[in-house]
């Protein structure tokens, strides 16, 4: 198609990359657009008060979240989420390394941990209210009580799976103590740790909402329940949409971070598959 000169050829190459990007956007947006269309159609044909049409939801969304409610509800929620996730990550990785490195500590802790893990975090909310009150620390505790497990268990697995040959190599070259922890144990366990953190992130959003549904005066979970009770149905939907978007953005950010941390791991796996 570009037999005349080189200029059209580069032009068509740029065109091709634009087209490729366009195709990608279509791929990403096709299903959401279809689902929204389907919902628009069924809600327009329904006289149920509880399923407002998308334009009503969109209007409520803009009105709600582009106002001071963003600072009153969204930011506190995100702050609790961040705090709960961070504490879970530090606690889970720290404890996981400890348990993963020592068989004795593991044997000591395992039964208790298995029991604690089996308790569904939402049932801890009443207890947490008694112990920690109804402020932010209760909500962070609820998030941590659920999120710490996937991080902890994955870290233990990752630390235990450190290659014995690599561990011997490190010993031979005098790599011990904190250097060993930093360059061998944590790096080698990082694929499992990241998998645990990814699970924890999804759980953290759920638990954030749940913790805010009880004895709360701010936050997304609180707002959604309040809208539902006051029959502010489009607003309730707008809250749910925002939660979905928050989850989507966070998981995209996480993926970017993971790409940086685990670039070597992806390459290694691709190389192994290629052989």
């Amino acid at each position: 198609m570009s037999s005349q000169s080189t200029a059209p050829s580069t032009g068509s190459r740029a065109g091709a990359s634009v087209r490729r990007a366009g195709t990608k956007v279509v791929h990403v947006l096709l299903l959401p657009a279809l689902l929204i269309g389907l919902y628009a159609y069924s809600s327009a044909n329904s006289d149920s008060y509880y399923t407002p049409t998308p334009d009503l939801i969109a209007a409520a969304f803009v009105e709600l979240w582009f106002s001071e409610r963003f600072f009153a509800d969204v930011l506190p929620s995100l702050a609790r989420l961040a705090a709960g996730f961070a504490v879970s990550a530090v606690l889970g990785v720290g404890l996981g390394v400890l348990l993963g490195l020592s068989t004795r500590v593991r044997a000591l802790f395992e039964p208790v941990l298995e029991f604690l893990r089996a308790i569904p975090p939402p049932v801890l909310v009443p207890l947490m209210i008694l112990l920690a009150g109804i402020d932010d620390s209760m909500k962070v505790l609820v998030i941590v009580s659920g999120c710490v497990w996937p991080v902890l268990l994955n870290t233990v697995e990752g630390v235990r799976a450190v290659d014995p040959v690599l561990a011997d190599t490190a010993r031979c070259y005098g790599i011990t103590g904190t250097t060993r922890l930093r360059v061998l144990v944590l790096r080698s366990a990082s694929p499992q740790i990241m998998a645990g953190l990814r699970l924890a992130l999804a759980l953290a959003i759920i638990l954030m909402v749940i913790s805010e549904m009880f004895a709360s005066s701010s936050g997304l979970g609180f707002a959604i329940v309040q809208f539902q009770r006051t029959f502010a149905i489009p607003e309730m939907w707008a809250g749910m949409v925002l939660l979905g978007l928050v989850g989507f953005v966070l998981s995209t950010l996480f993926e970017l971070a993971e790409g940086r941390v685990l670039g070597w791991y992806r390459g290694l796996r691709a190389a192994n598959r290629g052989e």
Binding site: V165, L166, D168, T169, L184, R187, W264, Y265
Partner: peptide, 8 residues
């Protein structure tokens, strides 16, 4: 393959 640090 197992004695080199794959992340370095």
């Amino acid at each position: 393959g197992r004695s080199l640090f794959a992340w370095m």
